[in-house]
Simulated assay, not measured.
Amino acid sequence: MRMQAPEMSQSLSSVVYQKILISIISGEYPANEKLPSEAKLCEQYSVSRPVLREALTRLKEDNLIVSRRGSGSFVIKRPDDAVLSFSKISSISDIQRCFEFRTSLEGNAAGLAATRRTAEQLGRIVAAAEKINEANKLHALASDEDFEFHLAIAEAANNKYYTTVMKSLRENIKEGMNITRTLSLRSSNNRMDLVQDEHDTILKYIIDGDAQKAEAAMKAHLNNARIRMFEGTDS
């Protein structure tokens, strides 16, 4: 059997991920119901089992499905269909993987910022956090303010490569922020308050100079943000 090149396998798995995601959002694969068998899904999407399993792994990482030994995969959450209003389905996989990448990148930057930041840099981080708070009071989207908060932390790591990568990913990062912050604003609960509490926790540990806790708080925030992208507005 001819082996697929890694880049081709990656591309196919993203396509399958997107197609299954659409089926979950549309209700074709309802929450709390079992997905078709791997054999049927492979036949339906004309892909190999390794390609399918990579797509299913991504869906598990996004907290949308769960595998039960001997029973198959089950849908555990139906994302709000508003997600599709804010982003092309073809880019959702990329946005999720961007969150994944940022978790490591910005977690390390926050840890370094806690011990390396100057008084001036700390002032910029605090000012950015305050701007987000003010925007939240006005129920504004505040994705620009949110990005500046994260960028200020990266700059405070005093390693130009963190800042360079953050700036190069600006559009990808902001697209993810636009989705998660819009859904949070539309939510019937206090989800935006939870987001701000996470920001405040990161800021506290940077002020305290606690690198380990600052890194952990940033990683937790970005992982939560990735998961919140697929939370319903009424949850």
Rank of each mutant, 00 (worst) to 15 (best):
G70R: 06
L84Y: 04
L59E: 05
N189T: 12
R226T: 04
Y17W: 13
Q196Y: 15
P79L: 01
E215S: 12
A220K: 14
Q96A: 12
R49T: 09
S93W: 09
K88D: 11
N133P: 05
S37G: 08
E155Y: 02
K219Q: 15
A140N: 12
E54G: 07
K60F: 12
N133F: 11
A113R: 04
R2F: 10
P50R: 03
V126R: 14
T57S: 13
D200F: 03
A225K: 08
S168Y: 08
D193C: 05
V66T: 11
E175K: 12
A156F: 02
I95F: 08
N190K: 09
E54L: 02
S26C: 01
A127I: 03
A135P: 09
K131G: 00
S48C: 03
A142L: 00
R117W: 03
E171S: 09
I227S: 06
S143W: 07
H199D: 04
F149I: 00
I125K: 06
F86Q: 04
E106N: 10
T182R: 14
D234V: 11
S91N: 12
S143N: 11
T201K: 11
L183W: 01
I25E: 00
L194Q: 15
N158S: 12
Y17L: 08
M3C: 13
G232V: 09
R53A: 02
P79D: 02
Q4F: 13
D62L: 12
T57A: 13
K131Y: 01
R170C: 05
V83D: 03
F230V: 06
M166E: 09
A140C: 04
E175T: 09
I132C: 10
E145F: 03
V83L: 14
S46Q: 13
S188W: 07
